[in-house]
């Protein structure tokens, strides 16, 4: 299930590559910050999805507002000569790390659970056949 968004990511970039190609100059720089915000929201969405807490509205508004806020912060920083870009990058970078680690833990736990369950089932089945043969 996690792979579908990743595949979609590549599809999206392929489309962009065909249609517009890399943007030049300062707009590209703001867009880079917006990308960080988008990435953070996507990972947050995957995490909440895996946790079973996903709500469409929160996710959609989160994506749009994060992207816009990051974009305009970077722009504002450029205008007032304070590198707000760095602040955005730092905060979003930290959040991306947190989200990624949580996703990793959830997936890992699920996988371990499944393995444990299978093992228990096999053992139960073995126990049953043994009981049948001795009984």
């Amino acid at each position: 299930m996690i792979f579908i968004p990743i595949v979609a990511l590549f599809i999206g970039s392929a489309i962009a590559f065909i249609i517009i190609g890399p943007q030049k100059g300062i707009v590209g720089q703001y867009l880079a910050v917006a990308c960080l915000a988008g990435l953070d929201t996507i990972l947050g969405g995957i995490r909440s999805g895996l946790e079973g807490k996903f709500t469409n509205e929160v996710f959609l508004t989160g994506f749009i507002s994060n992207v816009i806020i990051a974009f305009s912060l970077a722009w504002l920083g450029d205008k007032i000569l304070v590198d707000l870009f760095l602040a955005v990058a730092l905060v979003l970078g930290a959040r991306i790390f947190t989200n990624l680690s949580l996703i990793r833990r959830i997936v890992l736990t699920k996988w371990q659970d499944a393995r444990e369950r299978r093992r228990l089932q096999q053992r139960a089945a073995a126990g049953q056949t043994q009981a049948e043969s001795t009984g």
Binding site: I4, I11, G45
Partner: peptide, 27 residues
Amino acid sequence: QNWVLPVSILSMVLGFMMTAAWVTKES
């Protein structure tokens, strides 16, 4: 798993943005 569809769609949008922001030698 109702999260998969919206996340995938926005993920596509993100991919689009990332390519647009890609720093090339020309930029």
